[in-house]
Design a protein around this nucleic acid. Structure first.
Lengths: 201, 201
DNA sequence: CGACTTCAGTACCGATCGGTGCCGAAGTTT
DNA sequence: AAACTTCGGCACCGATCGGTACTGAAGTCG
């Protein structure tokens, strides 16, 4: 018996789940978790509520999968930045990447991880906690990366990797807020560049 | 005829509008515009929907007045910071104030101007635009203040007051996001302090 | 072909959304 | 006291919320 049968038997799905998930991600990004209703979502996804429920399970699950897609797509700059050689390059690439991702043409301004749900009522609390964990995960990645850099002598001994990590994450979050408010890419590039002036040498 | 009659004639209001508005502000702060329903609001305000409507006009109007109260209350550090003597002191006070306001005991973590509504659906678009304008107003205040500092020779001639203003605002916004995600006051004080390392001398 | 499995659309669920009309009660003015 | 004005609670408005049975059609297997 083949456990992983390619064709799951029965009528195959009539729509592209990847394309539908992409559209859902864009809508969550633009309107936030609570601001994107199931009707809005399924309309832009081009499917019915029943199909969405069968394919993705839940609004929460859909949001989770949309966030995952966001992480692998527009937010791929995070992993890319962490792979840089020096701590300074990591921070520079992280901030530059967040500027780029927050001002993409054809995508909502800002960051899904920030404006997806910062504060919410009872119904959006799950999404809010998911995003808080997502952001803190990014901060933790930076922290371990900077700690490693400190161990390698890539950072002055009197610098605190934890503070550096939170500072970079804070600036990136601020960039997302600014972008959501209409700041241009040029504006934010200047901010990101200026933010690196405080980097220890 | 007295145009401003103290007692508006008829039965006087049976609840403290200031206290009610304060409670509404706290709920908007905690849950955001869309996340705070009229039922939630009126319940914590201790009044009925009819009384709220008669006293404040609208959910939008209530939000506007709550934001005004927020500006004069927890966000009063903005005006306080702008009155400092030097540009550096302005920036330091602004960031320190945003850390304090974002981690007040008995108040929601973060900043109403940020998490009140960053992204929203159709119904919350008004609040979103109000907050975006509110944040940009703060940035503009910093801009004119720093421009004046540059004219006074309080800043090196090669520094751009616009970039400084947007940088300070960006860090403050990031601090609010971090606070909403659970960062402590000590964490953010270190970040604010570190952020000032890039300040021109 | 025939049995089987899933898709996707309609219609609908109870709950809640922001917002109102109504009306007796309560307080202020003349 | 009489006339007047507003308060504030109840019930309710149409619309929408997230989520589900139900059903007929459509595709894949033995």
């Amino acid at each position: 018996m083949d456990v992983t049968r390619k064709v799951p038997m029965g009528r195959p799905r009539g729509f592209d789940t990847d394309a539908a998930l992409h559209r859902a991600m864009l809508l969550f990004w633009e309107r936030g978790y609570e601001g994107a209703s199931l009707t809005d979502l399924t309309t832009t996804m081009g499917i019915t509520k029943t199909s969405m429920y069968a394919a993705f399970g839940n609004k929460d699950d859909l949001f989770r999968k949309a966030l995952q897609r966001y992480t692998e797509g527009p937010a791929a700059y995070v992993a890319c930045a962490l792979a840089k050689d020096t701590a300074r390059e990591v921070a520079e690439a992280f901030l530059a990447g967040s500027v780029q991702a927050s001002t993409l043409l054809g995508c909502p301004a800002g960051c899904l991880g920030v404006q997806g749900s910062l504060a919410a009522g009872e119904s959006g609390r799950v999404a809010r906690d998911i995003l808080a964990a997502w952001r803190d995960e990014g901060r933790a990645y930076l922290h371990t990366r900077f700690r490693q850099a400190a161990d390698d002598g890539d950072l002055p001994p009197d610098t605190d990797p934890a503070v550096l990590a939170r500072y970079v994450m804070t600036v990136a979050n601020g960039i997302a807020v600014q972008a959501a408010g209409g700041a241009t890419r040029e504006d934010l590039q200047q901010v990101a560049e200026f933010a690196m002036k405080s980097w220890p040498t």
